[in-house]
Design a protein around this nucleic acid. Structure first.
Length: 507
RNA sequence: GGCGCUAUCGUCUAGGGGUUAGGACGUGAGAUUCUCAAUCUUAAAACCCGGGUUCGAUUCCCGGUAGCGCUACCA
């Protein structure tokens, strides 16, 4: 490790829910910090007063915690002070810091006041477009004399503060892309502070405040989305103006939807909290996001816990090319982690999805809890996410004989003569039986029905399956029957096998 | 328009001057099952195009093309 401590930050704007792309950025930052034994800092970039909302900040923090990405330094929370010595960690609380730095730049002649109006600037841009030139500021206010500046100030003219860009290429090193270089004219003199009257008044622009924050917080590695890559030369110039050392950069590729457009709401779920609501496990999302733009050194391992990722991760192995978000692969991983999930935790999660059928978990009797555990063990491996459970389990909790007769798939099976005789024979045996139906009973009856009717295989099983579950296909009876019978004893209104048969045949 | 970034199976990726170009998801087939799913086995499937360097380029260089980003007194 080099002499400089590794310090990284995740700096979201609380203007919406945490997008999976940002979650990946947060993850890579976290992994890099943990791997290096460095610090991971959370900074809230809430300078866009129009769009920033406190509730989004709360959700953000909740989502990061859910993913397991804890931070060493971050903003204060209700009732607790900020953690870390480089605060405040909200940009809205750092305005005086920015103002001081602006004074300094102005005093040192590294920045200047620009009195150009929006109209004048737009005219310049239009001209540049027409002449097929890059849109660069002419630098008109760069050489204003002191007298003229005083006059403008005295007249109360609004001004913005611009940085003087030096006449040399702006280059930086990117851990995932190598050296990136921009000619100075590609940058032009950027605005640092928005226009207003007063000494250095006005709000600093994003590109300016990030640099001040990153430098003051001693960030060693700036890991962020590649939509910032074209902003970086501007930022490099700001570091230079202050005489600050450049951090290392790492620009992560964009996450796209199946149509190769930036992943957005119309592609389906995009925010971490939506994935959580759908019943994705945090370990699945984390594992998937890690794989989206990074590959293990052996080229084949794909399943990683956060701990395993921490020791395997390196920025050098991050892919520079954009990646398409693949819901199928996420589903596969989620299934994997669902199967691995510890029963108590899983039951607690799953309970919420079936709350409609169940009493509150806290007040549920032990018999119900353990039955529910068995139910989950049996069905969870067959869903991609927890929110598919209600549909998958609908037939266990409720039973609608009339509706199931109307389903095309069912009526085709039921209309066969053999189905009628099979069901009649089956019903006779169920009626003659007292108490819950056990798998042994069921097996014996099916053999008898088979002998009595001559039906076998699907011809034999499908009608019975429809009568019991409302569908010709489904899970194995051996395990399903006890689940139904034990469930029926719980007083939740779950129909027993004999009730099902009675109601179905009676229709 | 200008500038920049990117380019290996459908998708995520490994690899790298000479390889049968590897793995995973998904897809097809088979096994299993009353059935569906799960599971196991198996198959098909890729180096964007054109030049150059080289004995030899998918790999290095240049150009093209395409996708994306930036081009704001948004973040």
């Amino acid at each position: 490790m080099n002499a400089r401590n590794v310090r990284v930050r995740f700096a979201p704007s609380p203007t919406g829910l945490l997008h999976v792309g940002n979650a990946r950025t947060a993850l890579y930052n976290w992994l890099f910090a943990r791997r290096a034994g460095g610090s991971y800092i959370l900074r809230i970039e809430d300078t866009d007063l129009e769009r920033s909302e406190e509730r989004y900040e709360d959700r953000l923090i909740e989502d990061l915690r859910w993913l397991g990405l804890d931070w060493d330094e971050g903003p204060d929370e209700p009732g607790a002070p900020a953690s870390g010595e480089f605060g405040p960690y909200r940009q809205s609380h750092r305005q005086s810091i920015y103002a001081e730095h602006t004074e300094r730049l102005l005093a040192e002649g590294k920045a200047y006041r620009c009195f150009c109006t929006a109209e004048e600037l737009e005219a310049e841009r239009n001209l540049a477009s027409a002449e097929h030139r890059p849109h660069v500021y002419s630098g008109r206010c760069r050489h204003l004399g002191a007298a003229e500046i005083e006059r403008n100030l005295a007249a109360g003219q609004h001004f913005a503060v611009r940085l003087k860009i030096a006449d040399h290429p702006l280059r930086f090193h990117d851990l995932v892309r190598g050296v990136v270089e921009f000619p100075p004219e590609a940058v032009s003199d950027p605005i640092l502070v928005r226009s207003a009257t007063g000494a250095s008044a006005g709000f600093p622009v994003y590109n300016y405040s990030v640099v001040i924050d990153d430098a003051l917080m001693q960030i060693s590695h700036v890991i962020r989305g590649d939509d910032h890559i074209a902003n970086t030369p501007r930022q490099v110039a700001i570091y230079e103006a202050f005489g600050w050392p450049l951090p290392e950069f790492a620009h992560l590729s964009t996450i796209l939807g199946a149509d190769r457009e930036r992943l957005s709401k119309r592609h389906g779920a995009t925010s971490v909290s939506t994935f959580r609501e759908m019943g994705y496990l945090p370990e699945a999302l984390v594992n998937y996001l890690a794989l989206l733009g990074w590959g293990a050194e052996d080229g084949r391992t794909e399943i990683f816990t956060l701990d395993e990722l921490t020791s395997a991760f390196s920025l050098e192995r991050v892919t520079p090319s954009p990646a398409i978000f693949d819901f199928d692969k996420l589903n596969w991983l989620n299934r994997h982690y669902l199967k691995l999930a510890a029963p108590p935790g899983l039951a607690e999660l799953a309970w919420g999805y079936l709350a409609y059928h169940l009493p509150p978990r806290e007040s549920a009797p032990e018999a119900l809890r353990s039955w529910f555990d068995r139910l989950l063990a049996f069905f969870v491996p067959h869903v991609d996410r927890l929110d598919q459970l209600p549909a998958k389990l609908a037939f266990v909790f409720g039973f609608d004989p009339e509706a199931s007769r109307l389903v095309d798939e069912n009526s085709a099976v039921l209309s066969a003569d053999s189905s009628r005789t099979v069901l009649a024979e089956f019903a006779d045996r169920v009626r003659a039986h007292a108490g819950p139906v056990r798998p042994d009973d069921f097996k014996r009856w099916m053999n008898e029905v088979k002998a009595a009717t001559g039906a076998k295989g699907a011809e034999l099983f499908h009608p019975v399956r429809i009568a019991l579950t409302g569908a010709p296909s489904g899970p194995e009876f051996d395990k399903l029957l006890p689940l139904i019978e034990d469930g029926a004893a719980l007083g939740l209104g779950i129909p027993s096998v004999s009730e099902r048969v009675e109601r179905f045949v009676g229709v």
